[in-house]
Design a protein around this nucleic acid. Structure first.
Length: 966
RNA sequence: GCGGGGGUGCCCGAGCCUGGCCAAAGGGGUCGGGCUUAGGACCCGAUGGCGUAGGCCUGCGUGGGUUCAAAUCCCACCCCCCGCACCA
């Protein structure tokens, strides 16, 4: 990777940076700077990062979000808050278990992944145990985050699952509460099932190419032959039953004859098994070759038509039921297959069929679609030039097109009877319901394509009947969640609406799994609480982890954590002495824990990537409103987008995948932080773009600031210039703007304003002033260092120490703006000087040999006039009216000349925003003549008043003096 | 389809809420100059078109509209990205 190559001098710089970082990390730890305990004298701020799943080391993406949390924590600390920033680790769920199993099977990919993360050969063996993943990677995360400079209170660290019985007790308590309130219930649920291993097959249990394929609902329509065999045609488009011309089978496949729910069905092995797993009774009675069915007819249950059974190559006997109803008008496959039969009667002959059998079969249109002929399938096929049913790729494409168009915009024709005139999308569900109720069809859960388990077996859909659900669809629960959302603070603010929508949209959630890491459901121990479901209110656990996770200090054993303990500590219920007696935990310790909880709770801000909005963050709200009283509901949620690297999504495949530890190794912590912030760390949903180049140059930037600060602090002149006021005004205004951006967690904006914009102002200041004023320079160095401290804390600490401050900048106060020094008029005047400089330069382009510039200030009355205009405007008038009104107010001798100003003012409305009092303009320009001359390369600049000259070609305006070059 | 986020100059990207210092910040690239033995790094300048006085024209997805004034407000349309679940 290119950005790895640092030249030797840069390497030295990097070593210096790393040394500084190590030094401060050690000092912070030694001084316990980030360990937060209740302190009633200070306001608290509780900020969290969703605990990461510990199956790998952190990469730049996770680091990005947690960096925003750290910046928040550091900023709030500087604002005088007692900040709690804890961190735990998530191990609940399937992937770790699945990876451990795969490793046991000798899976090369897992070995490769582990090696790529730096796991040594002789250690890989240990990863066959899921537990080892948890301890290994939580350690890795902790190390990396420390090196990244996270201001975490590590005493509260923990990991989830029964591997941590303390946490498990807490989760058990939560679920007992939910059950008490009737928010957990049992139900049926379709899952992808491996018949060989007898288990649910999640994404992590499959080869990658099968990930993300979930069960879908399909309809099986029953076509009956004269001898009472049922031909069950599986379809996703039951509405097209009105256009069926025939039924397709694979002549070379051997179907089963099975009794399904008391009827004789012709069906494939696959669906026989799938139906059996979905509450249907299936008994196999015999077999039948597809070709034996050919030539018979079957009755369309809806229309009553007798349709022929015909052969088709495209029929996949292992998908669906292996039997397909043919709707040539609206299904490209069917259309092509039918045309092939018509054009090649020898196929029919081969099976001993008469060619007459297809002669009269014509597509039957039943849906009208804008932009298509009566037979849309024909259009789609013709457009792609499809000739044969074996052209799968094109046919699939055509099918997709027709399906989407007909579903969303198609209108049902007369032939569909009661449904005629309606849109497909509107009545589809009703059609299904009707067909099922009439006994014409059944619905079934199936997979849209073949999905294999990692073990090699083909999976099918099973209906699990004793599945536990979180009953999110309960209206009362949703109502409370909405109320919480109404009260919360969101960053960005647009998130509020998103959450309301998500709450409405959320349905019951299957909250238990089997054979995964986690906490067993307390009343049904075969099940383990699923990962999203066990990570909803654990922020409360951070307030207790300090006690629970340290038996060496507090002596609490897991079995002492009876529900009454959590009832008391988290909800204030019960008599503390009674709880102490029952649990054996001393009263004072229980009370201390209760106090700790009450001090920190609720969560003030939870910052996360945008991916958690529809799931975890919504659950987070739901569970809080279910368990806790209103005063402990979450107060805020902030989100950010993903990190891209050089404009592309990070992936190992592309070679732009960067682990946090690699980044820190290459650029150090602060430069990495700096580049991540600049990548786009404002609150929002947009992705941020990390540029390795920026990280590289940040190393020098940061060392440059240390050098600049150290060597300039205390330097400078003692005299006072007008331009000093300008710089102080800008500096103080910047503090206000940066503070606003910090409050909104718009950290890129804040950093750009605090550092880069200030640096530009400083350059201008030096250009104007020559040498800076000593006090102003000191203040500049202090303020900028303080403002970048949340972003580059190690660098800031180093500067702080070198300019003689102590103890830590991490606990120093955020700069207060000296509001009295903010002077908009001075800033406008400076702006005006800049405009004049630009204008002189512009004119010089045309008058190259000019030696002298005369700057002619507008006459006194014009200032009154313009300030009148501004008054009128601020009372709501538009510009033209404001000018008219202002003219009326003028003394009569000026009215005529004022009329002549209307056009120039309309043409240069910017003068209104730079307008200052005449004296201020005169002074600013007079003091800047030397500067203007120097910068424009002219010998002399002279400021003259309009009253002192006559016969001007140009009209001077306030804030826009006339300029004459000579 | 539903929900969300976007479309800005050669590229990336700010601005849009709160209309006017916006031909549009900041990077990158390119061109020119300085520095240097040379390269790199660094510094200065230029980078829509036209123009011998600070100007004019074109311009922020497309088309309309509101306004003295629109990248910014309103309406319609086109295009791109993300999510749509039992999974971390």
């Amino acid at each position: 990777m290119e950005w790895l190559t640092l030249r030797s001098n840069e390497k030295t710089l990097l070593d210096r940076i790393k040394e500084i970082e190590r030094k401060w990390q050690e000092r912070w730890e030694k001084a316990h700077v980030f360990e937060a305990d209740p302190d009633e004298s200070k306001p608290k701020f509780f900020v969290t990062f969703p605990y990461p799943y510990v199956n790998a080391y952190p990469h730049l993406g996770g680091a990005f979000t947690i960096l925003r949390v750290d910046v928040t924590a550091r900023y709030k600390r500087m604002r005088g808050y007692n900040v709690l920033f804890p961190q735990g680790w998530h191990a609940t769920g399937g992937p770790i278990v699945a990876s451990a199993l795969r490793l046991r099977e000798g899976d090369k990919k897992i070995i490769e992944t582990l090696k790529s993360m730096g796991v040594k050969d002789d250690e890989i063996e240990k990863f066959k145990n899921p537990e080892y993943w948890v301890s290994y990677f939580s350690k890795g995360w902790r190390e990396d985050l420390k090196k990244f400079g996270m201001s975490i209170d590590w005493r509260r660290e923990f990991h989830t699952t029964s591997l941590n019985p303390y946490y498990s007790k807490f989760i058990e308590w939560q679920y007992l509460k939910l059950k008490e309130k009737g928010l957990v219930g049992k139900g049926e649920h379709p899952v992808v099932w491996c018949p060989k291993e007898n288990k649910v097959v999640g994404d992590h249990d499959r080869p990658d190419e099968y990930a993300g394929i979930s069960p879908v609902e399909a309809v099986i329509i029953k076509f009956r032959t004269s001898d009472d065999l049922i031909l069950p045609a599986l379809t996703f488009r039951p509405e097209t039953i009105y256009g069926v011309t025939n039924v397709w089978v694979d002549p070379d496949h051997e179907y089963l004859i099975a009794e399904v729910d008391g009827e004789k069905w012709v069906i494939n092995d696959y669906m026989a098994r799938e139906l059996a797993e979905q509450k249907h009774t299936v008994r196999v009675e015999g077999r039948i070759q597809g070709k034996e069915l050919l030539g018979r007819t079957a009755r369309n249950p809806v229309t009553g038509d007798e349709v022929p059974i015909l052969p088709a190559k495209f029929v996949d006997p292992e998908l669906g039921t292996g039997i397909v109803m043919s709707v040539p008008a609206h299904a490209p496959y069917d259309y092509v297959a039918l045309m092939e039969l018509k054009e090649n009667p020898e196929i029919l002959k081969m099976y001993g069929l008469s060619e007459d059998i297809v002669k009269e079969l014509e597509p039957i249109p039943l849906i009208k679609v804008e932009g298509y002929s009566r037979i849309p399938a024909k259009d789609a096929v013709a457009r792609r030039g499809i000739k044969q049913q074996t052209e799968r790729w094109k046919l699939d494409d055509a099918t997709k097109e027709i399906y989407a168009k007909e579903y969303h915009t198609g209108v049902l024709l007369e032939i569909t009877g009661q449904w005629a005139g309606r849109k497909v999308s509107e009545v589809k569900d009703a059609i299904i319901e009707w067909m099922v109720s009439k006994g014409f069809a059944i619905t079934v859960h199936t997979l849209p394509e073949r999905v294999y388990c990692r073990c090699g077996a083909r999976t099918h859909v099973k209906l699990v009947s004793d599945q536990w659900f979180l009953l999110y669809s309960k209206p009362e629960w949703k109502r409370l969640a909405h109320r919480a959302v109404d009260k919360m603070r969101f960053l960005p603010t647009s998130l509020r609406e998103v959450f309301h929508k998500n709450i409405d949209w959320l349905r019951d959630w299957a909250c238990t799994h089997k054979r995964e890491l986690g906490t067993p459901l307390p009343w049904d121990k075969d099940w383990v609480i699923e990962s999203l479901s066990d990570s909803t209110i654990y922020m409360a656990y951070y307030t207790l982890a300090k006690y629970l996770q340290h038996p060496e200090k507090y002596g609490i054993r897991p079995e002492q954590l009876i529900p009454e303990v959590f009832d008391y500590v988290l909800l204030g219920r019960g008599d503390v002495n009674e709880v102490a007696r029952k649990s054996g935990i001393p009263t004072n310790l229980l009370e201390e824990m209760r106090r700790e909880f009450l001090y920190w709770y609720p969560v003030d801000l939870r910052i996360s990537g945008k991916d958690l909005i529809p799931n975890h963050l919504t659950f987070f709200i739901f569970h809080h409103v279910a368990i806790f009283p209103e005063e402990h509901w979450p107060r805020g949620i902030g989100t950010n987008g993903w990190i891209l690297v050089s404009g592309e999504k990070m992936s190992k495949h592309k070679g732009n995948f960067i682990l946090l530890r690699q980044a820190i190794d290459w650029w150090g912590a602060d430069a990495t932080r700096w580049a991540e912030i600049l990548a786009g760390a404002d609150a929002g949903l947009d992705d941020a773009n990390f540029e390795p180049e920026v990280a590289k140059s940040a190393i020098e930037e940061l060392l440059g600031w240390i050098r600049f600060a150290e060597s300039n602090y205390g330097k400078g002149r003692t005299s006072r210039l007008a331009i000093d006021d300008w710089f102080e005004s800008v500096l103080n205004r910047t503090i206000i703007e940066v503070t606003e951006a910090m409050e909104a967690t718009n950290y890129k904006t804040a950093l750009v304003k605090a550092y880069y914009n200030m640096q530009n102002y400083y350059k201008w200041y030096i250009k104007r002033a020559g040498e800076p004023n000593r006090d102003v320079l000191k203040r500049y160095i202090e303020v900028v260092t303080l403002m970048i401290a949340p972003f580059a804390p190690h660098t800031a600490e180093e500067v702080w120490e070198r300019i003689g401050k102590e103890p830590f900048i991490s606990t120093a106060r955020w700069p207060e703006p000296e509001k009295e020094k903010i002077n908009p008029e001075i800033e406008r005047a400076e702006e005006l000087v800049r405009h004049v400089l630009e204008d002189i330069r512009e004119i010089r382009k045309f008058v190259k040999d000019a030696r002298k510039a005369k700057v002619i200030i507008a006459a006194e009355w014009k200032y009154n006039f313009v300030s009148r205009i501004l008054e009128k405007r601020s009372s709501g008038l538009d510009l033209r009216r404001a000018i008219q009104e202002a003219i009326k107010d003028l003394a009569s001798e000026h009215r005529k000349s004022a009329g002549r100003l209307v056009k120039p003012i309309m043409q240069n409305p910017e003068i209104l925003s730079v307008f200052v009092k005449r004296e201020v303009e005169i002074r600013a320009l007079s003091e800047a003549t030397e500067f203007l001359a120097r910068e424009s390369g002219i010998d002399e600049v002279e400021v003259v008043l309009e009253e002192e000259v006559q016969a001007l070609k140009k009209t001077p305006l306030p804030a826009k003096p006339a300029i004459i070059l000579e």
